[in-house]
Design a protein around this nucleic acid. Sequence first.
DNA 1: CTGAATCCTTCGGGATACTG
DNA 2: CAGTATCCCGAAGGATTCAG
Lengths: 135, 135
Amino acid sequence: MATMTAAQRREQARAEYDAFIRGCPTNQLLDRLSDKWVSLVVSALAGGAMRYSDLGRRIAGVSPKMLTQTLRSLERDGIVARTVTPSVPVRVDYELTQLGHSLSLLLLAVKDWAETHIEEVHEARERYDGSDGDQ
Amino acid sequence: MATMTAAQRREQARAEYDAFIRGCPTNQLLDRLSDKWVSLVVSALAGGAMRYSDLGRRIAGVSPKMLTQTLRSLERDGIVARTVTPSVPVRVDYELTQLGHSLSLLLLAVKDWAETHIEEVHEARERYDGSDGDQ
DNA sequence: CTGAATCCTTCGGGATACTG
DNA sequence: CAGTATCCCGAAGGATTCAG
């Protein structure tokens, strides 16, 4: 019907737009990078292959659930490779694939930008918070 | 005490680690970029200044609340500049600062990587889902 | 037109315990 | 050792309404 509320129109627009956004490679990548643990795992693995429990210790504070979940999604995306060695206690190693290394390079670019400009951001925040934010 | 459960040790480690992570510029930036609307707003603004309501229309599906919230945080970080023109109906324009433009360049790098490698990711997913994921 | 305030639902992710 | 299964809570964010 022609009489839609603003919210209804927004909702419909959102339905279409969501599809567009989910299909957008940039957004997909951003979503992936946004995951708190992803960048940590990739960084940890940038130095070489590691075992599951080693990663758990290296990335302090991660729960088994999130570590597994992160590793699984990275494996699915072809970022990390999982190698099972069926020894007496099972041994599982994770390492970056070529694609994973490529990603770690991008992470480096992000890191560079962050370190170069974070100071400006902090200054901007202090200016903003100080100008009228002092309650 | 020396007798801590694994969870307790994890919790303590997490407390320290969280502080470290929050203080890490890279992670701060990643957090910011991860925000669903941030990259959209920055991209929209990359083409020039826009009014509040124009942004709302351009970025279909965004609620006033999220648009305002996104804009506020970006303004606070010195990414966008807010200009109020006190005409009869108030007019507010938003535009990227120099820092904002610099960020949009990084966004472009991310976009490049995504578009270059998304196909590999999709192939990896199909391989992963197809190998044993077909239930 | 440009928001601020409020309510309310969803869901990511942590704690915990159990299995091959 | 390397996970899996379950419960549960807090926070993010959408809808709605009101205001300058």
